[in-house]
């Protein structure tokens, strides 16, 4: 196993999330300030969870060759910081993407025309008047 493989995989995965986020304006590219608060909250929450589990003796670091071997705290490898960031980012990009698809589907059912995933005009960021009526119709269909 290649040393640093895990960290490398996490960095590539994080970069992939950023590409999708930017392409479809899902999270940080939809609202940078709000996204940053959510991301930092996720990182703090999951690192607390890790710290508690390590302190209680539930987790300990492994000795796999794919780790770079740097610890940011006893038994907490550097990779974990990237992992909890990735988990939080993946969650928000995934949720926004699913939400976008569901919204578009409901709107499509309402107006009977076709819309793809689109160009980043999300349900939270669009101010065009026709979007509101589309949305309202979607609401009625959903009920």
């Amino acid at each position: 196993m290649i040393r640093g493989l895990y960290l490398g995989a996490l960095v590539v995965s994080l970069a992939s999330m950023a590409v999708m986020d930017r392409r479809w304006r899902l999270f940080l590219w939809a609202d940078a300030w709000r996204g940053a608060i959510v991301l930092v909250t996720g990182v703090v929450l999951f690192l607390s969870w890790d710290a508690a589990a390590i302190r209680l003796g539930f987790f300990e670091r492994g000795h796999g060759q794919a780790l770079v071997g740097v610890e940011i705290a006893p038994h907490l490898p550097l990779e974990e910081l990237f992992f909890v960031t990735f988990l939080s980012y993946l969650t928000m990009v995934g949720h926004a993407l699913v939400r976008r698809v569901l919204d578009r589907r409901a709107a499509r059912l309402a107006v009977g025309s076709d819309h793809g995933i689109g160009d980043g005009r999300g349900h939270e960021s669009d101010h065009r008047p026709d979007h509101q009526s589309r949305h309202r119709s979607g609401h009625e269909v959903a009920r």
């Binding site: 196993m1 895990y6 209680l56 003796g57 539930f58 987790f59 300990e60 670091r61 492994g62 000795h63 796999g64 794919a66 780790l67 490898p77 990779e79």
Partner: peptide, 11 residues
């Protein structure tokens, strides 16, 4: 890949 381990008695 042995990136982390668990204390089996806590599971």
């Amino acid at each position: 890949a042995d990136l982390f381990r668990y204390d089996a008695s806590a599971l």
